[in-house]
């Protein structure tokens, strides 16, 4: 066993090298960023103190003279409505794009084009889509829904296409052999067998769209609780009202998250 006294050299493994380089690069970038970014010459200690004091008011004394609890609730329901419309429109369009994007249902060139289109749509931030459509439709709910729908389409197309691809090729083959055409296969085999996945993915997107709808209310003048948040903090500087709104959003978001976690569990379980 003398030959083994010498430990053979360790070959470099690509994945390890890549992870190390990446983490090193990110650490370097972060240090560079924190050192060079212009943070606007604010007094950090004072700002932190102020923020803590603000947070205390926001979270310990929610309330407000302008906005009652009930009207805040009404505004949240409007936000939920925006999220629902966005998800529905996005889902319907994504259903067709998903069929075109699934590799077991469509020819390769079509899937490539669909997936590239979807990636392009996703690369534009939601707020920019909304503002672009606001030029034609005016700032408000209509532009917000149309703009947000674009992102939902891109997210759901990818999710739906993957769900369709899970369907066994042999099932499609069997139906083809029996003389069924493409549409018959889609409606009799593909959609029924992946329906519960589709529903779960759609619900996950609904949760995301709720947060988006709040953001569009604040940044693009869509109605709903986001706009109230923007007014309370940006115009009236009313911290107690900000607190009330934050609590209500938090309650709804957590409820949606709990439901979405169950939906996700279903996807994983079946997958």
């Amino acid at each position: 066993m003398t030959a083994l006294q010498q430990i053979p050299g360790r070959p470099l493994r690509k994945e390890k090298v890549v992870i190390r380089l990446l983490l090193l690069g990110l650490a370097g970038t972060t240090i560079y960023a924190l050192a060079t970014l212009d943070f606007g010459g604010i007094d950090m200690a004072e700002a932190v103190r102020d923020t803590l004091a603000n947070l205390k008011i926001i979270f310990l004394h929610p309330g407000g003279p302008r906005l009652s609890f009930l009207s805040a609730l009404e505004e949240v329901i409007i936000t939920l409505g925006l999220a629902f419309l966005t998800t529905l429109f996005g889902g319907i369009i994504a259903l067709f794009l998903g069929l075109l994007g699934a590799q077991n249902l469509s020819p390769k060139p079509v899937t490539v084009v669909v997936m590239a289109l979807v990636a392009l749509i996703r690369a534009v931030p939601t707020i920019l889509w909304v503002l672009i459509f606001a030029v034609a439709a005016g700032l408000g709910s209509t532009a917000a829904v149309v703009g947000m729908t674009f992102h939902s389409i891109s997210y759901l197309t990818k999710a739906y296409a993957e769900s369709f691809e899970d369907l066994d090729r042999s099932v499609i083959e069997a139906l083809k052999a029996s003389g069924a055409n493409w549409w018959q296969i889609v409606f009799q085999a593909v959609i029924p067998s992946s329906f519960s996945y589709l529903l779960s993915w759609t619900f996950l997107r609904f949760e995301i769209n709720f947060a988006n709808a709040v953001a569009m209310g604040a940044a693009a003048g869509a109605s709903g609780v986001g706009f109230d948040l923007f007014m309370a903090s940006g115009f009236y500087f009313d911290l107690r009202e900000v607190g009330l709104i934050t609590y209500i959003i938090l309650a709804f978001a957590m409820a949606l998250e709990a439901a979405a976690t169950r939906a996700k569990g279903r996807i994983k379980h079946a997958g």
Binding site: V48, L55, L229, G234, I249
Partner: peptide
Amino acid sequence: PLVAWAMILMLA
């Protein structure tokens, strides 16, 4: 939501 964080932090 991110916007709430942004609005709250912007005050200080």
